[in-house]
């Protein structure tokens, strides 16, 4: 039996993009929701970071828009097994929002209009890894995808990217959120396939 060689032309063997284990590629943008879609007016919208010492940092919509804007292009991976590559967003880095927050906390509980929560290590919200985004593909983020604004933490399963985000509570102790208290993994790294507790 002969040896099959990929040849010397350097042509890639496959055009398939690398996906985390157990994921399939979709060109759609599926809408997942655990409840009714909140309709939040931009006049009353606010984003609040509450530190563990009780101090609060608060931004109105106009104040959020006045902050430096970034345009991350990222791959997103849903725990229900779809992945979507090269998605285009615009928003404000959590590095910017956390810059003036005096905290020794190691954890954050993101909370949303409508009552959703999800927990993350604070380090995963820093270092250019997370944003509050308000624009998708050049248009205002539709409500069914989390508009006016959602969290975007693309290196973790997408349930961590809380829709309709309203704020972060910084905590010294980890406090599991909505899906994390119902069997889903506390951290949710798609590359380690951390779907359920104990994975």
């Amino acid at each position: 039996m002969g040896i099959v060689s990929p040849g010397f032309q350097g042509r890639p063997r496959t055009q398939e993009p690398a996906l985390p284990p157990g994921q399939y590629l979709t060109e759609d943008f599926p809408v997942l929701s655990a409840g009714p879609t909140p309709r939040v007016s931009l006049d009353t919208w606010e984003f609040v970071i509450s530190a563990e010492n009780g101090s609060e940092h608060r931004w109105s919509w106009q104040e959020l828009m006045a902050l430096p804007q970034e345009t991350p292009m990222v791959d997103i991976h849903c725990v229900t097994r779809w992945s979507k590559l090269g998605t285009n967003w615009q928003g404000v880095s959590l590095d910017t929002l956390l810059a003036d927050v005096d905290t020794g906390a190691h954890f954050a509980l993101a909370h949303s209009y409508g009552g959703y929560t999800t927990n993350l290590p604070l380090d995963d919200l820093r270092g250019g890894q997370a944003w509050v985004v308000h624009t998708f593909d050049g248009a205002p983020l539709p409500a069914e995808h989390g508009g006016p604004a959602r969290l975007l933490v693309p290196h973790l399963y997408f349930w961590k990217s809380a829709k309709w985000v309203r704020g972060l509570r910084l905590k010294t102790m980890d406090e599991p959120g909505f899906w994390e208290t119902a069997g889903y993994h506390d951290y949710g790294d798609p590359w380690r396939e951390q779907r359920y507790q104990g994975d």
Binding site: L32, G35, W179, A182
Partner: peptide, 24 residues
Amino acid sequence: YSHAPGLVARCPSCEEVMVRLVRG
């Protein structure tokens, strides 16, 4: 609500969550 990582059943009056069922 079933288009979600689990089933979420809400009260028809106040929309609070009454049942969550996740199937691994």
